[in-house]
Design a protein around this nucleic acid. Structure first.
Lengths: 251, 251
DNA sequence: CAGGATTTGTTCGTATGTATA
DNA sequence: TTATACATACGAACAAATCCT
């Protein structure tokens, strides 16, 4: 329970930093409890009035805290039923054979990849080096949004060398799968050579595409895929909603 | 430019929160600019006197801000030349043999691991399952901060089964390395079985330990290490400053 | 190469606000 | 309340390294 001054202002204590609002304290408390596993996935949180009583605050304050947790992707509420913990994420293994559709299908969900935009542009030095083409030569750039059960999981920007894959956008739109698109070019197998993972925030564009609030954490996954003869085929910069997916490395 | 009272005290303004020091405001400003890419890697920042003039502060104050940015690992200074942006990240490969000290040493930096706190506690269901011990049996929990060239890279919470590794904290404090600590227990080799990567924000505690501003992105790396006979040895929840490290998966 | 301009590093000194015993 | 220590901030001067004409 939080101690409060006679005027109702929160007083400093060990858990509560100066200037932090009550609802944020409550939200942070529950986030800790959820992340520490005190509440399991799918479990119902105590009723709003219960929580309000325990903290000695108004029910509206608890509702504000729960709204914050919903924004953080940790809970969802069902009217008349309660607020439930939602912490399961799609496990996304990073392997030699990394195929979005196979991964999602294997975990029992329905995968979809939609080409949003595409463009032919001169390759940046970075992209040229990865694809082993000369800097300034053309590359085809695809922007793909991937969903599992219609929930957006990632947006990816993928580059191909334009001289070999000039009409890759058209082919992809027909097949809706990188694997089948490459098969069309006679590449029956390809493998992930390296993957580089870091994290940032969602910018406005990505947040919109991922149906995510801005400033939510994003896993940035850069990667290079090559043929079985180690010839670079495509390189990708994927942005995964960290609230909805976890990357798994087995070794 | 910051307005100041006649007595030389900083006055509140839009950029400056209450009770925040001048040098911290300037440091945070530049951190934002750097992280937003307004200054590229290797680019020179304006001269100290320039910045001092623009903010209307003494050169010492700017120097204090730059020192902070250097501590955060975002810039370095060269006498007579200037202050330069340094945003390349430490490449942290995730492999079967994943050893912090070896990784950092291989990239030419000085690694250090400091045990901050430790505790014996009943294992949560999650931890018990990973370590293959019975839920509720004791586990030793270590909180370790790891640095490269004294720049904090990660904070890790590591659990060991207490029955076998009861005094692991003492041993670790002596050896300052997980590898050497396990050697003390007769475990000459161990390997990473799986790694699970997701992302969030730094909370106040982690931000403090990582000398990072709060709300910066954090890579959350959970993992299990086993002996060569696949016996679980330790499990870890690491929080990496995403601004300072990128995880690499080669396959 | 010379030499002046620029830029960071260092050391004095002064004053004020904050935290602690 | 007082005394002490510490952090913040400003000012001036000079040293040392680098850059540029």
């Amino acid at each position: 329970m939080l101690t409060r001054t006679p005027r109702g202002l929160p007083r400093k204590n060990s858990l509560q930093a100066q200037g932090v609002t009550l609802w944020r304290c409550i939200a942070d408390d529950f986030e800790q409890l959820i992340l520490l596993g005190k509440y399991e996935n799918g479990e119902r949180l105590p009723a709003e009035l219960d929580v309000a009583g325990r903290y000695g605050v108004n029910r509206h304050t608890v509702r504000r805290a729960m709204a914050e947790l919903a924004v953080r992707g940790l809970v969802y509420t069902e009217r008349g039923s309660g607020t439930f913990v939602k912490t399961d994420k799609l496990d996304y293994p990073i392997r030699r054979r990394t195929r979005f559709s196979e991964i999602v299908a294997a975990s029992g969900h329905e995968a979809e990849g939609r080409l949003q935009r595409h463009r032919v542009e001169p390759a940046s030095p970075e992209i040229a080096e990865r694809l082993k083409i000369e800097p300034g030569k053309n590359a085809v750039r695809l922007e793909i949004v991937r969903t599992a059960d219609r929930v957006p999981i990632s947006v990816s920007t993928t580059w191909f060398a334009a001289d070999r894959f000039g009409d890759v956008a058209k082919i992809f739109r027909r097949h809706r799968s990188i694997t089948r698109t490459l098969a069309h070019y006679g590449i029956s197998d390809y493998r992930r050579q390296w993957t580089r993972i870091t994290a940032t925030f969602a910018d406005a564009v990505d947040a919109g595409r991922l149906r995510l609030s801005v400033q939510r954490p994003i896993l940035v996954v850069e990667s290079l895929d090559v043929t079985s003869e180690d010839v670079p085929v495509l390189t990708t910069r994927g942005r995964f909603a960290a609230d909805r997916a976890a990357l798994i490395v087995e070794s």
